[in-house]
Computed example of a mutant assay.
Amino acid sequence: MRFEFTAPLWEWASQGGWYFVTVPEEASEDIREIPRPPRGFGSVRVRVSVGGSTWTTSVFPDSKVGCYILPMKKAVRVAEGLVEGGDVPVSLTVLDL
């Protein structure tokens, strides 16, 4: 299952230095419906591409907004010139199927 979306980069205020992109509501609902074994913190393994960078990570449910959040590694933010509040074009493939 693959999703393409653009969302702003934001910093997690209570844990400075951690940056995320919020997976849109519709895509989050689709991901939530995929039957899979439970993983820590409700995480879902994914492969992500942003610009020329591709990596494997996990998305995590955010109970405050009801969507998954995607952590954005510093190396990717630097390589792709991403800044807080800027739009990030994401290609996300769910690996836990």
Rank of each mutant, 00 (worst) to 15 (best):
residue 81 G to Y: 02
residue 24 P to A: 11
residue 95 L to Q: 12
residue 74 K to S: 10
residue 24 P to S: 07
residue 36 R to F: 05
residue 76 V to G: 08
residue 84 E to F: 01
residue 92 L to D: 00
residue 71 P to D: 02
residue 90 V to M: 13
residue 15 Q to I: 12
residue 79 A to E: 12
residue 93 T to D: 13
residue 18 W to F: 14
residue 68 Y to C: 02
residue 78 V to R: 13
residue 45 R to H: 07
residue 43 S to F: 03
residue 14 S to D: 09
residue 59 V to E: 08
residue 30 D to H: 10
residue 29 E to A: 13
residue 77 R to Y: 05
residue 69 I to F: 10
residue 55 W to M: 09
residue 40 G to N: 03
residue 84 E to V: 15
residue 47 R to C: 03
residue 31 I to S: 00
residue 33 E to W: 13
residue 88 V to A: 07
residue 25 E to S: 06
residue 82 L to Y: 06
residue 17 G to I: 06
residue 79 A to Q: 11
residue 70 L to H: 08
residue 15 Q to T: 10
residue 54 T to E: 10
residue 70 L to F: 08
residue 18 W to H: 07
residue 60 F to N: 00
residue 39 R to W: 09
residue 74 K to C: 00
residue 14 S to P: 06
residue 70 L to V: 06
residue 45 R to I: 09
residue 17 G to K: 04
residue 43 S to C: 14
residue 41 F to G: 00
residue 2 R to F: 01
residue 91 S to T: 15
residue 44 V to K: 01
residue 55 W to F: 14
residue 63 S to N: 06
residue 5 F to N: 04
residue 33 E to I: 01
residue 66 G to L: 08
residue 25 E to T: 06
residue 64 K to V: 12
residue 52 G to D: 15
residue 32 R to E: 08
residue 78 V to K: 11
residue 47 R to H: 01
residue 93 T to C: 02
residue 22 T to M: 02
residue 43 S to Y: 02
residue 87 D to Q: 14
residue 6 T to G: 03
residue 39 R to T: 12
residue 96 D to W: 08
residue 10 W to D: 03
residue 37 P to D: 10
residue 2 R to L: 05
residue 71 P to T: 08
residue 43 S to Q: 09
residue 2 R to A: 03
residue 73 K to A: 12
residue 23 V to Q: 07
residue 12 W to S: 03
residue 84 E to P: 05
